[in-house]
Amino acid sequence: MAKIIDQLKTLPQRLLTIMIFLLVWEIAVKAGLLYPSPVPPASSVLGALKDLAFESIFWEHTFVSMQRILSGYALAIIIAVPLGFAVGWSTTLERYLDPLLQTFRQIPLMALFPVFILFFGTGELPCILIIMLAAMWCILLSTISSVQNIDPFLVKTARSVGTSQWDMLRKVVLPSAVPSIFTGMRYAYTDILLVLIAVEMLGVNGGWGIIVSSHEHHGQSHTVMYAILISMAIVGVIVNYIFVALERRLCRWKETIEIT
C-alpha cells in the first residue's frame, strides 16, 4: 500500500514530460508550424481517444488482437524458455544448435508470412505462428544468455554442497535467470506489435491493424487513426507494467540464493 501511495506522489513528475509533449504538439499544429500538417492537434486526438473508449467496435478489435498476442506469447514462452535453458546449459547442444538458430533469426519474419499462409491457410494459425516467432527470438536469446552468465560463485557453492544437475537447474539456474527472461519477454512485446499490425494490415479478420489501415486508406479521419495508435501505446505501457509487477513477485526467489 505504501508503495502505491509513493507512486501516486511521484505521478505528477512522471506525467510532466508527457504533458509538455502534448502541449508542444498542440501549439505546433495550432500555430501552423507544421503546415500543411498531416497531424491533427493533440486536443482533437485526445477527444477522439475518449470517444473511442466508449465504442464497442474498438474493444472488439482490441480483444481480437490481444487474443493473438497472448496465444503467440504463450507458444513462444513454452518453446523458447526450455530451449534457451538447454542451449545455455549444454555447451554441446549450443555447438550444434547455435548456427541454425542464428541463421533462422536473420530471416525477415514478414517475408515468411506468405509461406505460412501457403502452409497453414488464411485463418488465425499463420497469424499466431508469426507472432510466436517474433516473440521467440528475444525470449530465447535472453534465456540463453541468462543461463550462460549465471554467477559462477553461486554454481560453485551449489556444487560444493552436492547439488545434482537437475536441482542445479531447478533451484539455482532458473531463479537466477528469471529476471533476464522477463526482460526478454518485455522487449518481445515491441517485436510482436510490429509484426501483429503488419499482418493485420495485410487483411486478416479484425484486429488493430485493420482499424488503423481502414482509417488511413479511406481518409475517414486521421484523427481517429492517431487516437488508435495512442491507445495501442497505452495498452503497451499496461502490458509492460504487468510484466514488471510479475517479475517483482517472482524475483523474491532471487534473494533466496544470494551468497555471502
Binding site: T157, S160, G162, S164, T256, I259, T260
Partner: peptide, 20 residues
C-alpha cells in the same frame, strides 16, 4: 555430485553461505 555431497566437505575463503 554424489561424491561431492558424501565424501567431501568444502570451506571457502568467502564463506559461500546462502544469505537468506
Amino acid at each position: 555430485a554424489v561424491i561431492r555431497g558424501r565424501k567431501i566437505g568444502f570451506v571457502f575463503q568467502t564463506f559461500n553461505l546462502v544469505a537468506r
